[in-house]
């Protein structure tokens, strides 16, 4: 009896808090059929917003993947002074509100910031332009690959790597042939989470972008803009497209995953 009660409570919680809101958005979106939705997401501004979101993700995800794997290797396999601090700082983006991140970037790269004037002199606009939006997105999505890879690296240990070295493999060969294949699913999961976070980023980007319609407006900002402009169909349609892209990433990753690794 208690088992059923627990199961019921768990499912209700999910239903009320997760499934219902997302389901409602889907329902409201397609209330009047497919045509208005298609029309809403193919306007110039909408297309630009989605393109910008994808562009930012295409830069931020690879950057955080390479950096994340490197940092995880350093944390698990190397000893260096300040390692504990580094390990803690990695989690900072999870603890910090994205709005704070955005403000910090403004302080650094804004016209009156530390580095702002330097870039302005060289004709590079960081704030209210693509560079700061990429920086903000990289910041908020930084921990995911590191946090997925670190425990797996710990678990596989160093014996396989040592075996490879006694068999004549250089450090680079060991990394490419032994270590990376052993952690590939952790990396893949980290990439999925990073991608989802990049696609959904709102707060930090909202602060540094300046909301310039058709220029510095990402998909999430576009949704907010349409919503505030009482274009509910546009807002819902963009939301649904955003959700579909995220779901597609997850599904693609699971589809590529061979049966061997699911055990």
């Amino acid at each position: 009896m208690a088992r059923y009660a627990l199961r019921f409570a768990g499912l209700s919680y999910l239903a009320v808090l997760l499934v219902a809101p997302v389901g409602l958005v889907f329902w409201r979106t397609f209330e009047h059929g497919l045509a208005p939705v298609w029309h809403a997401v193919t306007t110039h501004d909408a297309r630009h917003a989605f393109w910008l979101t994808i562009l930012i993700a295409l830069i931020a995800v690879p950057a955080n993947t390479v950096f994340g794997v490197g940092l995880a290797l350093a944390i698990v396999r190397r000893r260096f002074p300040g390692k504990g601090l580094v390990n803690a700082v990695v989690d900072l983006p999870l603890a910090l509100s994205p709005v704070v991140v955005g403000l910090a970037l403004l302080l650094l790269y804004g016209r009156l910031g530390w580095f702002g004037p330097f870039f302005e002199r060289h004709g590079i606009h960081v704030v209210f332009a693509l560079p700061s939006m990429i920086l903000a997105t990289i910041f908020v999505s930084l921990p995911f690959v590191v946090r997925e890879v670190v425990p797996v690296l710990r678990e596989i240990g160093t014996e396989q790597e040592q075996a490879a070295s006694t068999l004549g493999a250089s450090s680079l060969q060991t990394l490419v042939r032994i270590t990376l294949p052993a952690i590939r699913w952790a990396i893949a999961y980290g990439v999925v989470l990073t991608t989802a976070r990049c696609l959904g980023e709102f707060g930090a980007v909202s602060v540094v972008s300046g909301h310039l319609v058709g220029r510095t407006e990402t998909a999430t900002l576009y949704v907010q803009d349409q919503f505030e402009g009482f274009d509910l169909t546009g807002a819902y349609a963009a939301s649904v497209l955003l959700a579909l892209i995220a779901i597609a990433t997850l599904v693609a990753m699971n589809a590529f995953r061979p049966k061997e690794a699911t055990r």
């Binding site: 040592q162 075996a163 490879a164 070295s165 006694t166 068999l167 004549g168 493999a169 250089s170």
Partner: peptide
């Protein structure tokens, strides 16, 4: 370095390359 000593090493817990077949394991070196 271990790579250049010409030793064969066998580990207590096998240190098998889990993502490789038996053939690939033996062929590694």
């Amino acid at each position: 370095a271990p790579q250049r000593r010409g030793v064969g090493f066998v580990f207590q817990h096998y240190a098998a390359f889990k993502h490789m077949t038996v053939y690939e394991n033996v062929a590694f070196g």
